[in-house]
């Protein structure tokens, strides 16, 4: 039977690379040699079929349809022989955006939030930014500018904080319980694009400091890791010959909390499931 204790709530807006990570993770699990391996075969590979095909061809995968939400159950086994079933979702990231914008959480999502003891938040730092303000880019004389009303645009980190606050609320757990019992992993995707020298936590601190403070205040042991699911950027139309010849399972890496790289893409999952398996 599926044990709800082993499902992971994967959170990521559109374009952060959920499908790429899912497909590459699947490849790694099937190949073995990592902290986690596949124990049998996944129930349903359909959500990742197209992505796997594109990667095998050395191309990047297409966009997941907005309304899609498919859970795929992956039987996994760790190095000690302990078995678990990992429930891995694939969905269009617009669902997250629409939740934040409409400030309403669909009941399906509420159920997922309540079932998953571990959340994995995918953030692509290139997609987020803290806009310049009068502190980062001072203006010689502010008093000469006109006063005007302008539309309120939520900053990216405020949106992500609001998302986590919303999910905490519908998850119906007390702040104290959450701090000590639930787990949160932050995965900074497309790490290769960042060209950042330092640990993932430092990158998050530099780019989204308020979100980092929020996470550290609300979870006792949040982990921040980096991910380059593909290892390099792929085009949708042109094939990458190395990919085709060596196979996509030989590309991609994780940046561990201490900044070291590891080719084992199952590490963040192992870390999140560590205590609940």
């Amino acid at each position: 039977m599926n044990s709800p204790a082993n499902s992971i709530l994967l959170l990521g807006e559109s374009g952060v690379g959920k499908t790429h990570f899912g497909a590459q993770l699947l490849k790694r699990l099937m190949k073995g040699g990592g902290r986690l391996g596949m124990d049998g075969q996944a129930t349903n590979l359909e959500p990742f079929e197209a992505a796997l095909e594109s990667l095998n061809e050395g191309k990047s995968a297409g966009h997941t349809a907005t309304s899609t939400y498919i859970d795929s159950v992956w039987p996994v086994v760790n190095a000690l022989g302990r078995r678990a079933e990992l429930i891995w979702p694939d969905y269009g990231g617009e669902q997250i955006k629409s939740m934040i914008d409409s400030r309403r959480v669909p009941n399906d999502w509420r159920t997922r939030v309540r079932r998953a003891p571990a959340w994995l938040l995918l953030i692509r730092l290139q997609q987020t930014r803290v806009r310049d303000d009068l502190f980062s880019k001072p203006l010689a004389d502010l008093r000469s500018t006109s006063l005007d009303n302008r539309d309120v645009q939520m900053s990216d980190q405020a949106r992500l904080i609001e998302l986590l606050q919303m999910l905490n609320y519908v998850g119906d757990v007390t702040a104290e319980h959450q701090r000590s019992h639930s787990r949160l992993g932050v995965l900074l995707t497309c790490w290769d694009e960042l060209a950042f020298d330092g640990t993932p936590a430092e990158a998050l601190e530099e780019r989204l400091p308020l979100l980092r403070a929020f996470i550290r205040s609300n979870w006792s042991t949040p982990s921040v890791m980096g991910l380059s699911a593909l290892g390099r950027s792929l085009s949708k139309s042109e094939r990458d010959i190395d990919y085709v010849s060596q196979g996509p399972e030989n590309f991609g890496y994780i940046v561990m909390p201490d900044g070291l790289h590891s080719p084992d893409l199952t590490l963040p999952i192992q870390l999140l499931l560590g205590d609940v398996q």
Binding site: R131, D133, L134, R150, V152, A158, I161, A213, F214
Partner: peptide, 22 residues
């Protein structure tokens, strides 16, 4: 102390909005 959340994020963004460059 550390920031731990706010239930008026849009309100904060509204008062801070005009101090930003757009």
């Amino acid at each position: 102390r550390r920031f731990a959340g706010s239930f008026s994020l849009t309100g904060w963004e509204a008062v801070a909005g005009s101090l930003r460059w757009s």
